[in-house]
Design a protein around this nucleic acid. Structure first.
Lengths: 213, 213
DNA sequence: GTCTATAGCAGGATAGAC
DNA sequence: GTCTATCCTGCTATAGAC
């Protein structure tokens, strides 16, 4: 099925499709728009992917999931060095997802795609859950609980991990609201501030903030 | 502009439009679908709202914003009773947004609409920020800092409030992913568990969980 | 294999009967 | 004011020229 030789037209189609699906969502994007941006032709999509829907799923198979796996390798160093500090773990995690992509645009695109899938799942969400989210969460859970005297069960730790990811997602997809209320732009300084905030909030919650001297 | 007498056709159109826009998003919904569910006719939308876009904005003006204000009144009792416990505040806040709607469907619809606006803003987001989010956040910030010896500035407290809302949003719009990973359904028991989790995580973060005996 | 042409259908908006 | 009929545009998918 996969061509041994990479087809550059097919690659451009996947690139532009991913950008547009993230920006506007499946229904708001036309195949014509994708092909014209990819400097290709309407029927090239049909030739390479059969249908628009299958192009969408291919974006996840061939772009999104490999990228998510790449970002997840940022956690390898923690395991290799046998890091025991939860603070370092959470900071690494937050930084990996807030800054561990090629650039800001790529990170936003990546997270807008998963956000759409989470609120309106297609076949892609199950692929992602099985191949990415579940393995990553299990690794994180084991890293944390193996160094801690906690009696928490796995489900409770999963909820905590969701709370960390919830913040990462919110500060990306909700950046418009955040900017409207804080008056801050998403420049590198603010992003660093957000990473520190997520780390501190996830570790100590509100009490840590309110009682610090 | 507003009719003194409420037009039942107009009301049904707003009701069905809100449901469908929340479920599928602006582009994926056709006016024909809205009018057929409202047992009305295609041109009724044109007559009452002019355009599809204006119907969408009217949903926020006449449904979403009034509902958000209604939910926000759940915070009044805290001010009236001069509550000083941050734990009570956060729990009230989480419960108001996790359970303080007519029913589960209404809450999900409400939060899917704001989620879409946050990631892809239209004129509606500015209305919401001005008329709902900013006033609520200011109230919450003042309630918390007026009882605390904290030196935190307002911006930092805003980030904390975003982190609380981030979790509320995530456990709603991301419920598919949460269910896939935990195997739990969103029954009332799980929702109570989530409210408690958000309260605890927001107050004490991971450390509170890991060091509890 | 690439691209043109087009089938076949659904969309938003409107005009006009009543 | 309500509803039918229709316009025009844009869509996906396909057939077939080259």
């Amino acid at each position: 099925m996969e061509p041994a030789q990479i087809d550059p037209t097919r690659e451009r189609l996947l690139d532009e499709a991913e950008k547009l699906f993230a920006l506007k969502g499946f229904d708001a994007v036309s195949v014509r728009e994708i092909t014209s941006r990819a400097e290709s032709h309407l029927s090239a999509v049909n030739y390479h992917f059969g249908t628009k829907k299958n192009l969408y799923l291919s974006v996840f198979e061939e772009r999104w999931i490999p990228r998510a796996r790449r970002v997840a390798t940022k956690l390898d160093v923690l395991e290799k060095n046998n890091v025991t500090s939860v603070e370092v773990m959470v900071h690494t995690l937050a930084e990996a997802f807030m800054r561990g992509f090629g650039d800001d645009r790529e990170r936003l695109m990546h997270q807008q795609l998963i956000q759409r899938e989470m609120s309106h799942p297609t076949e892609a969400l199950e692929m992602i859950a099985e191949q990415v989210t579940k393995p990553v969460f299990l690794r994180l859970k084991n890293m944390i609980v193996s160094h801690q005297p906690s009696q928490n069960n796995g489900e409770d730790m999963f909820l905590c991990l969701f709370s960390v990811f919830a913040q990462i997602f919110f500060f990306n997809f909700g950046r418009n609201m955040v900017s409207l209320l804080t008056g801050r732009e998403y420049d590198p300084a603010f992003r660093d501030q957000v990473v520190d905030h997520i780390t501190n909030f996830s570790l100590y919650g509100l009490n840590g903030r309110l009682t610090e001297s």
